[in-house]
Nucleic acid binder design. Sequence first.
DNA 1: CCCAGATAGTCAGGGCACTGAGTATTTCGT
DNA 2: ACGAAATACTCAGTGCCCTGACTATCTGGG
Lengths: 161, 161
Amino acid sequence: MAAVDLTTHPGHLARRLQQAHYLLWNTMVSEEITSPQFAVMNALVAEPGLDQRTVGERVGLDRSTIAEVISRLDRRGLLHKVRDPQDGRRFLLRLTDEGARTHRKLSVRTARMNQVFLAPLSADEQTVFFDLIRRVADAAEGLRNPAESRRGPAEPLAAQG
Amino acid sequence: MAAVDLTTHPGHLARRLQQAHYLLWNTMVSEEITSPQFAVMNALVAEPGLDQRTVGERVGLDRSTIAEVISRLDRRGLLHKVRDPQDGRRFLLRLTDEGARTHRKLSVRTARMNQVFLAPLSADEQTVFFDLIRRVADAAEGLRNPAESRRGPAEPLAAQG
DNA sequence: CCCAGATAGTCAGGGCACTGAGTATTTCGT
DNA sequence: ACGAAATACTCAGTGCCCTGACTATCTGGG
C-alpha cells in the first residue's frame, strides 16, 4: 500500500481551506458577489482608476481571469471601464456608486465571516496562521517571477547551498 | 477610503496559497495529471473498490466534481468503472495497472514538490502550519453538516479481507 | 520615419468547484 | 407487495483559474 497521507500535503489542505471558505462566503456574505469579485472591488476602492493588469497584480489573478471577473462586475453595473486617453491599450477602472455601496456592505459581512472562519484559533494562532500562509505563498509566487519585482525586494530567493 | 487589508483575510490567503501550489505542481509534478486527480488515485490506492460518492468524501469533492475528475481519469485509462452487482446505483472504482504506476511515479515527485513548497518554514513551523489549516478547514466543513459527526463511517464497502 | 519588440487586452480551450433539477435504483414503512 | 423516501449518479448552468495564440497599441533604435 503506497498510499500517501494527504493531510500532510499543503496543496490538498489549501484546496480544502479554500473550498470551506467558498461555502461559508456563500452563506454569510453573498450568493451574488464572489470573494475574487470583492477583492477586485476592494483594489479599486484603494486605488481608483487602475487598469486591468494592475488590478490583477494587486489581487493575484492572471490577465484572462481578471478580464472575466471585471466583465461580470461591469455587467452588474458595479464598475466602469473607460479607455485610457493616454494609452489606447488600457482600460481604466472605477467603481460606480452602486459598486462602492456594495463594497461597503460586503466589507461588514466579510469581517463577520472572517471571525467565524477563524474562531477555532486563538488570537495568537491567527497571527501565526496569516504569517505562515503568507510566507509560503509569497515564496512560491517568487519562484515564478524571480526578476519581476520593480519596486519590491529583488530577492533571488536562493534555494540554499 | 474604506479599503480592507486582504492580507488579513483567510479566504484571500487560501486562494493565493492554492494558486501558488497549482503552478508549482504544474512545473514540478505533472502537466497532465492535476492535484485533485492525484488525490482521487491516492484514495483508490488506499481503498480499492470505493464508489464515486465515497471517493468524493475522502478527498473533499462534491458529487458533480468527482464525476468529472473520474471521467477524465477513466478516459486516460488510469481507472476502471464497474457497476456494483450488489447495488445498481453505484460504480466501483479501481486503478488500472497504468494508474497504479502513475500514482507511484507522482508520489515521488509530489514529495519533492512539498519540500520545495514548504521550504520557507522550519520543521516546527510546518507542523503548526498543518495543524492550524486543518483545524480551520475541519471546523468550517463541520459548519455545513453538523449532524455528520454523529454518523460513524459506513462500513459496508469493506474491500475484501 | 519605420519596424521590431514590448505591453494591454481578447479568445479558445482544458480543468476545478458548486447548485439545482432530473433519472435510475434501492430501502423502508405500512 | 406497494409506494414514498433515500441514495448514486448525470446533466445544465455559473464562476474561477490557467496557458497559448491572437489583435491592437505604444515605444525605442536605426
